[in-house]
Design a protein around this nucleic acid. Structure first.
Lengths: 333, 333
DNA sequence: TTCAGGAGTGTTACCGTTCCCAATCCCGGC
DNA sequence: GCCGGGATTGGGAACGGTAACACTCCTGAA
């Protein structure tokens, strides 16, 4: 910077002003400085800037299982938006959903003086940990449970999504809809259960028992085998697409045709759900958009920490080939 | 830091020495300082440290399509290893595989003074761009084409993997093996083609034509439809699992049974490949391990920039239910 | 007893910015 | 022609660490 100042024949302070687009610099001077910067291939030292301004222009993301499509897409969306807003993104993942590891991740990011944090927070433990973050550090939670907590959140209307799926199946003429749920201690799974249950109840349909376990295909496979044995089962709503994949396999192996005999609906709309056997009807979440929104919320919160806002995104039903009317002999009454 | 020094009754320099584990500090003094740090909840200001040492203790990752399982897993592996090595990880993604966007990403990271860069580099353009990175900044490319370039690389033995798959099918008794290739301008796709072709040639089998297109399920579906029409086709090696998913769907819809009539092999071993219909035999890449290795290579290169090393990881065949001997009437001779 | 040398500690300078304040210049109004 | 005030610029002083060097002890050998 000193070199630039010397070359342009001004003080280092003026160079700084040009850099920060301070209004009170004469056009001509500014041009001279810019030229000098150009010819010296100058770039400002962000560490020095951070030292004095206490702003690193870096945002932190803490995430769990970032290897899966959902979290990875959110991260992608966040990074994309952060870039256009002039921020770099640092990540800190944690291996289990306890308070401790989350706080450690926050701490690590804090050490590096991030200006704000977005947590991909599928469980309350994460959001709770966030409320313990030091004051003055803006945090936003995305993707998990909403909450009246002190932390702004962005989330999907899981209950609404589940309702969409259930409604769709009922409208096709199914007497009731079975559900293969996600893990019982995940708010997202709970909300989907709630949405499903309420829709059935409102329609006066019987509410079959559920056995919440996990998010993966194996769960779907195991529970799908049981459901396949029950001839009364004609419609299954799965808590996510991976579970649906397992269910489809179980049904197929049991010789029950989809969608002729049994209809199946998923949740998420993973990249290749449209190529399952058969192509999966599912509830689509736009993860990247979720990421973008959470970044916008974070920036807003950083600018003026008003009362924490909560953004809810509405998912959308994508109808493909895994759902149809129930077989004739079983149609209502 | 000044406060800590005052509380411990020493100079700030001594505090610094304790912080950096300098040997020449008396046990007792060290203890006093540590206690003071504890009671003041002191944490060093990394910006200041970076300013003077020119080391940010931050690593950069540049990545493409980090939303997919492979890249996301590598990122995960890298972050994991980086954490234990005391580094934070920042990411910069780019949207297309040209030189420009890649260089911009590198530049962004450089502005933030990262100590090194790992590029998830599926195409040569990325690796090439890396060689233009400023001297003194260590770079490693992972996951794409290896190269005698000036950049250390970590990659999977794609040809070997393809050979494994092809060999497996030939050993089952298939006359030849068809291939649904990935995009022709991706080195990984090329290597898999080469491995497949060589294996066939070495076995004296006919080499069917290929039509390299893209990595997704749609490609598999479209090409699978054509292959399904040809009764001579009994074995298909797909360039990745997503393609295999599409092929499976096409075969199923054409009424050709897998594996009784046609065998299918994938590549990658995505999380739920074991729940495809039928469970997919595939070639497994350990992406997270790839990430860890690339980090190790980067650290090594940062410590002493010797001649660029190249690490090659051997993939492994996972046999599941999508492969079997060809139907009797078509067995050899 | 003297002195070399290492352990332990403090002093000062500096890393590259931005902030605060003062200085200078220029303009219009009286 | 003098003066108030905004525009423009420059000169330090931070920011919170680390590096280099100097200094004070203390020990052991000559």
């Amino acid at each position: 910077m000193r070199d630039v100042a010397k070359l342009a024949g001004v003080s280092h302070q003026t160079v700084s002003r040009v850099l920060n687009e301070h209004p009170n610099v004469r056009q001509e001077t500014r041009a001279r400085v810019l030229e000098a910067m150009e010819s010296l291939d100058y770039r400002r030292n962000l560490a020095a800037r951070t030292l004095v301004t206490r702003q690193s222009h870096t945002l932190g993301i803490i995430g769990f299982e970032t290897t899966l499509f959902g979290p990875a897409s959110m991260l992608y969306g966040i990074e994309d938006a952060a870039r256009t807003a002039g921020y770099l993104v640092s990540i800190a993942t944690f291996r289990n959903l306890e308070r401790r590891p989350v706080l450690e991740a926050v701490d690590r990011l804090r050490q590096h003086a991030v200006d704000g944090i977005i947590a991909i927070a599928p469980k309350h433990a994460v959001t709770d940990a966030l409320t313990q973050a030091p004051a003055g550090l803006s945090c936003v939670a995305v993707g998990g449970a909403g909450g009246g907590d002190g932390v702004p959140t962005v989330r999907v209307d899981n209950a609404g999504g589940a309702q969409l799926a259930t409604r769709h199946l009922l409208d096709l003429g199914h007497r009731t809809v079975h559900h293969v749920a996600g893990p019982g201690d995940w708010p997202e799974a709970q909300e989907r259960i709630a949405g499903w249950r309420e829709t059935l109840t409102a329609a006066g349909a019987e509410v079959p028992p559920i056995l919440p376990q996990s998010w993966n295909a194996e769960t779907g496979y195991v529970q799908g085998q049981a459901l396949a044995r029950d001839p009364a089962v004609t419609a299954i709503f799965c808590a996510n697409d991976r579970i649906a994949l397992g269910v489809l396999r179980a049904l197929h192996e049991a010789g029950r045709k989809v969608p002729e005999e049994v209809s199946v609906v998923g949740f998420d709309d993973m990249p290749d759900s449209g190529y399952f056997l058969p192509p999966l009807t599912t509830v689509r979440q736009d993860f990247a958009e979720l990421g973008r929104l959470s970044l916008a919320l974070l920036l807003q919160h950083m600018a003026g920490p008003e009362s924490p806002a909560h953004v809810v995104v509405t998912p959308e039903l994508v109808v493909r080939a895994s759902t149809a009317a129930p077989p004739k002999r079983r149609s209502r009454r």
